[in-house]
Amino acid sequence: MLRELFNSENSVLYHVGKFVMWQKEIYKKPENWSMYYKEIVRQMYDIGIGSLTIVMIISLFIGAVTAVQFSYQLSGGLIPEYYIGYVVRDMTIIELAATITCLVLAGKVGSNMAAEIGGMRQKEHIDAMEVMGVNTSAYIIMPKIIAAIIVIPLLVSLSAIVGIMGGYLASIATGSVTEADYIKGLRSFFVPYNVLMMYVKAFVFAFILTSVSCYQGYFVKGGSIELGEASTRAVVYSDILILVADFIIALVLTS
């Protein structure tokens, strides 16, 4: 019974075990650092520049919606209006920038990685590299993970800034708060620790979305239908794990 639980390909434990064992292969000494370096730079470009527009659009609207919704809840209450700036800032920094950006990136970057690596598996590119003596787990996966944990925190920082700007634009445009009040709110009750929390989330989520998506692509079996399924699983599992990790980080860092 216990053996089946670990050996059956349908078992979650089997995949958890395989994923953990696979990590040992990924972080081995590269055959040639310069080849890995080139690949890291290429991946940084793909993840960073490739996702810039979507991250900015989403962040702008998230900030704007947060400001408008909070302004609606404040109306007629006792809470001062400048609190809108404060709430938008903290909501964005503590939660929305990291979580929403990474959920979006799981859909965009994660599915792309799973499809790319799965395609390489199906077109025998991975076999070709292995016959040459390349550690494919390291050469294909490690640059993606390194690039992601460098670039995604930068995207999250940008998302936070754009989100706060979105809140500002929406507040001013709707007249729910004055420019001076919004800025006053932004400068009130600032806790630098919240920024640390944002970066911890960004690093952890970046690792989750890349490693889970790469795992789905690397071990894909079958044809185009299975590749599509792997790509979908990459997004779904990454999203679920990001939300679980979000909760755990929130518990640990706020306790």
Partner: peptide, 11 residues
């Protein structure tokens, strides 16, 4: 290093 391979789909 002593092995070369041509794949069916060229890879």
């Amino acid at each position: 290093m002593d092995v070369g391979m041509l794949f069916q789909g060229n890879a």
